[in-house]
Structures are given as structure tokens and as C-alpha cells.
Design a protein around this nucleic acid. Structure first.
Lengths: 155, 155
DNA sequence: CCTGAAATTATCTTAAC
DNA sequence: GTTAAGATAATTTCAGG
């Protein structure tokens, strides 16, 4: 289990993954050595999965984000999931409860590309029976800090 | 607009935000200085929004992930959105087209906490009229590389 | 399990070309 | 774009609380 110092470390790394160990140690109130050891331990324990870069989808050319609820034929779920993992425009995919079997989040350059994506690519993935598309008009909130969420949940 | 080298840089940074400039330069086939300059330019242009850490929600104590479609009274949309931004357990929020007005992704420790979250917190946010909850049973795909998506979309 | 310091190695950042 | 060099930071090790 993570203690309060670990959570402070994780929160700081979620805010800025490129912070130096010197700054990180100062921010959490430790000296460099134990701070470094805790980060390594968090990596080894799988709490920290890796370090990534936040990209602005619009700045790189993606004007459209959409959510798609997908119902499939479960006999080919493995093939469907493999195809989802391979498709570059599918950002995220969850198996969900409810009316649909999966929830997908996709990006496309524009509406024309979204239309092509839906008609020519998504509908042809293995086992797809029905799709319901909802456009993301605006992002209100991006990713949260899990460490801060944990501090709230465990209060 | 980003050229092929910029996209390679972004792809490498999305894979590992803590890669050294030496390794990054070698990976994209540049020497360190121009590589460093391109990264700074990408940061200044807002293409790179920041560097973050991927955390395993389960490892930090969140056993439940859920999607919630929320319909609200638009007269208080500003207050609703402000409350959403402040709530630590709401990971993501998009304003969407379709039956509901917003799509939220939340995390909770367990089912009991999800029940409390829905009944005592979400339903009391400003203007909330109706919620439809769908559990995320399994994550098929996490975040993609936008740089690789762009390479696909612009082919 | 922490601090602090010292030594080594690697990396960052700037400046000159 | 390159190469080069001084400033900074990462990492390991060790003595000690």
C-alpha cells in the first residue's frame, strides 16, 4: 500500500513527469536518495506504468473526437479486440456493461474522415452489429491525478 | 504543421516522456541540439502540453471505473462544469452530442463507493436531471500515440 | 528507513561554427 | 544543421542516525 509520501511523489510525477529528482525530493520533503528509491519501487511494483507526453489533438491535426458504443457478436470478440488494438485512430476502448458491449473513443481529422471511419472501417471490424456515435463537442476535463483522487477517496 | 521528424519526436516522447535527449536524438536521426530545439518549439507551439505519468488505477486502490452519461439543465451548465472540474473522482468529462449532454468517466474504490458517488455526489451536482451509468469491465486499449495516429490519418 | 556528502557518470543547455 | 564545452543533474556508494 502507498503511504502519504508515495502519493505525494505520484502526484508530483503526474503533474510533471520530467521533474528532476532534486526538485521532486524537495517537493515531497525527502532527500534525493530515498526519493529515488521510492520512485524505483513504485515502478517495480507497477504503480507507475510509464511516463508519457500530453499532446494537443487539435494541434497535431485531429479536429474531431467521438465516442462510439459498439455492440458485437461475442463469438468473434477476440478478433474484434485485436483489430481495435491495431487501429491507430481508436484512442481508447473499454468493455462495458449496459446496452452496448464496448465504448470506443476515436479521433479523426474532420467530419469527412469520421464518416469514412464509421462506414468503411469501424462497421467492418470483426463481429460489429451496431454502433451508436456521439461527438465530443468540448473537453471539460482531461485526466485527473490518481494520487489526488486516492487522497480524496481514502480520507 | 509538423514534419516527419516532429512526428517521430512526438511518438518517442509519447512512448517514454523521460527519454534523454541523447537517446531521443539517436532514435529520430538527429543530433542533440536540433532535437532539443524541436522539442522546445513543440512545447511553445502547444503541441506538447506537458509530461505525465501513467498510473495503474488498481494499484493505487481504484477497483471500479465507470462511464456516466449525464443530462443537465443547461441554465446551470457553468456551475455543473465547475463542479465536475473540482471533483477528484471524475477523471474525464466531455460535452457530447446525442441523448445525454455530458459523458463522464469516474473511478471509485469499490461498488459501495460507486453507489455513494452516484447517489450522494453526482446526482447533487448543479442541474443534474438524469444519469445513465455503464461500468467499465475491462480496458482493451489505453491511450494511443497521436503521432502514430497522425501518420496514419495523413497517409 | 531516513540524512548527508562525495564521486562518477550522464545529460542539459548555450555558444560558436 | 554540427561539434564542442561548461553547467546541471542522475546515480551509486558510504558513513551515520
Amino acid at each position: 500500500m502507498l503511504d502519504a509520501l508515495d502519493r505525494k511523489i505520484v502526484a508530483a510525477l503526474e503533474r510533471d513527469a520530467r521533474v528532476s529528482f532534486g526538485e521532486l525530493a524537495e517537493a515531497v520533503g525527502l532527500s534525493k536518495t530515498p526519493c529515488w528509491k521510492r520512485v524505483k519501487a513504485l515502478e517495480d511494483a507497477g504503480v507507475i506504468r510509464g511516463y508519457s507526453t500530453r499532446i494537443d489533438p487539435a494541434a497535431i491535426g485531429f479536429g474531431i473526437e467521438a465516442f462510439i458504443q459498439v455492440s458485437i457478436d461475442f463469438e468473434v470478440s477476440d478478433a474484434f479486440e485485436a483489430a481495435v488494438k491495431k487501429h491507430p485512430l481508436i484512442r481508447r476502448c473499454y468493455a462495458t456493461t449496459g446496452e452496448a458491449d464496448y465504448l470506443l473513443q476515436i479521433v479523426t481529422v474532420d467530419m469527412r474522415a469520421l464518416d469514412r471511419m464509421l462506414r468503411e472501417e469501424l462497421s467492418r471490424l470483426p463481429g460489429v452489429r451496431r454502433t451508436v456515435t456521439s461527438m465530443a463537442m468540448r473537453e471539460i476535463k482531461g485526466d485527473i491525478s490518481f494520487a489526488e483522487a486516492a487522497a480524496h477517496a481514502l480520507r
